[in-house]
């Protein structure tokens, strides 16, 4: 004969630890990818501050450049660089999974979809560098 409690169950809900994402490599990779967005936002902020400098004149811009030489800013930007590259790689590798392209009844291999992304990345980066460094 079943027994009943005075407090009916609300439905079973497993308690999940706040640190659930430390459990597995795939989870850690997922959370690192999510956290990359914070560094994306950080450098957009840096860029907006630099644009403000451009808007306010040469002296304002020089002050901002000087502030970016601060070791703390360099360290933060170095970390940001790694996170943003991580974001880029995971993003480009995800493209073949998001688009299942079929040609002649066969699925186009993943490399055929992600490769153009990498080529575009290289071309765009080179173009930006060329514009800024040509003197």
């Amino acid at each position: 004969m079943p027994t009943f409690t005075a407090y009916p169950a609300q439905g079973y809900r497993a308690r999940v630890s706040t640190y659930w994402w430390l459990g597995r490599r795939a989870y850690l990779k997922f959370i690192l990818r999510e956290i990359s967005s914070v560094f994306v936002a950080w450098f957009v902020l840096v860029t907006v501050v630099q644009i403000r400098g451009l808007a306010h004149g040469p002296d304002a811009y020089a002050r901002i450049q000087h502030r970016l030489e601060n070791p703390l800013a360099i360290a933060l930007n170095l970390i940001s660089f790694f996170f943003v590259v991580f974001h880029a790689i995971t993003w480009f590798n995800l493209a073949p999974k998001a688009m299942a392209v079929r040609m002649g009844g066969k699925r186009v291999p993943a490399i055929m979809i992600s490769a153009p992304n990498y080529i575009a990345w290289a071309v765009v980066s080179a173009a930006v560098a060329w514009l800024l460094l040509r003197g």
């Binding site: 450049q65 970016l68 800013a73 360099i74 940001s80 660089f81 943003v84 990345w121």
Partner: peptide, 22 residues
């Protein structure tokens, strides 16, 4: 935004955040 961040931010951070200040 994910595409723009992936394509443009690495080179921007590399230049404006690291190579120029250093």
């Amino acid at each position: 935004g994910g595409v723009v961040a992936a394509m443009l931010l690495p080179i921007h951070i590399l230049l404006f955040g690291l190579a120029f200040p250093l």
